[in-house]
Structures are given as C-alpha cells and as structure tokens.
C-alpha cells in the first residue's frame, strides 16, 4: 500500500502535470444519484434558469472530486490523500451539448512536510472562471 511517488524525489515549487476533465449532463445525473444530492439546479435547466443561474451547474462536490482524482492519480494511491479541502469560488456551467464543460486542473508542491508528506495546492478552472480556491491536499508519499 502507498503512493508510488517518492518524497525524496519531489521538490518544493515543483509543478505537477496539468489535466483536463470533461463534464456533461449525464455525469451530473450520475453524481446526483451516487451522492444523493438531487438539487434540480444540477440537472433541470428550466429550474436553474428560474432561480437566476445561466444554465445547469455542476455540483461543487463533483468539481472537488475531479481535484481529488487529479491528486490520487498523481500520487498513485487513493489512500495517500490524508487531508483535502477546497473553497467553491465559482460555478461550472454545463450546457446541454455534445461537449459540456471542461474542468482544467493543475497543481504545485507548495511545501514538503515531515513524515514524507507534501502539501499540493490545486488550481481548477472552467472557461475563464477559477472554480476552486484555497484548494489544498496533504499527500502521504513513499
């Protein structure tokens, strides 16, 4: 068990490879079912617009999950994430077309901690908007 990335081989300030994740309406329907969050702003365009939103928006937790996926894919083990927090700073608007929206995630090693841990700070964008802020994960490396 454990991460495949070695603590000794990473440096403070190191950038992690960026990744892009597509999100379409069907993903939000699946996320609603899996999470139990059936708020209609996440699947019903008519309702979303009636409450002043530009269109259906992704669950914040869906976006947070993409950031989590980014970190666990990098570290090589889902159990390596020992602390993960975000602020939801903007919406991911998901249009009803063949592309949906793109969430672009990048990360940087902000600090090397004792016990072979690191702090990874994430940036997540969709279009021009920064959709997560204060996004940081503490990761247990090998």
């Amino acid at each position: 068990m454990g991460a495949t990335i070695k603590w000794d081989e990473v440096e403070q300030g190191q950038e992690l490879p960026a990744a892009e994740y597509q999100v379409q309406r069907v993903n939000l329907v699946m996320y609603a079912g899996a999470s139990g969050d059936f708020n209609p702003i996440h699947w019903n365009e008519r309702f979303a617009k009636s409450v002043g939103l530009p269109d259906v928006i992704a669950h914040g937790m869906y976006t947070m999950a993409q950031g989590g996926r980014y970190v666990t894919d990098w570290a090589g083990d889902p159990a390596a994430v020992v602390d993960y927090g975000v602020r939801f700073s903007s919406m991911v608007v998901v249009p009803d077309d063949d592309n949906g929206a793109t969430i672009s995630v990048s990360g940087i090693i902000e600090e090397k901690l004792p016990d072979k841990r690191v702090i990874v700070v994430l940036t997540a964008r969709s279009g021009d908007a920064r959709v997560l802020s204060k996004a940081r994960a503490v990761v247990q490396l090998a």
């Binding site: 068990m1 454990g2 994740y21 996320y31 899996a34 999950a65 993409q66 989590g68 666990t72 994430v81």
Partner: peptide
Amino acid sequence: AAIGDANPIYRDAEAAKAAGHPDVVAPPT
C-alpha cells in the same frame, strides 16, 4: 463511476488487495 474515475482500487477488491489494502478504498470525497 459518477466522478468518472476508473482507478481499479475503487472497483476491484483484488486490485485493492494487490496494492496492499484490505478491500476497495473510497475516494477522498
């Protein structure tokens, strides 16, 4: 599946055990 993550450690108990876990692991969120 809902978060689009194909990691076998979430889906396959044998893969999770091969990676040193007692069973499949839950994603961080």
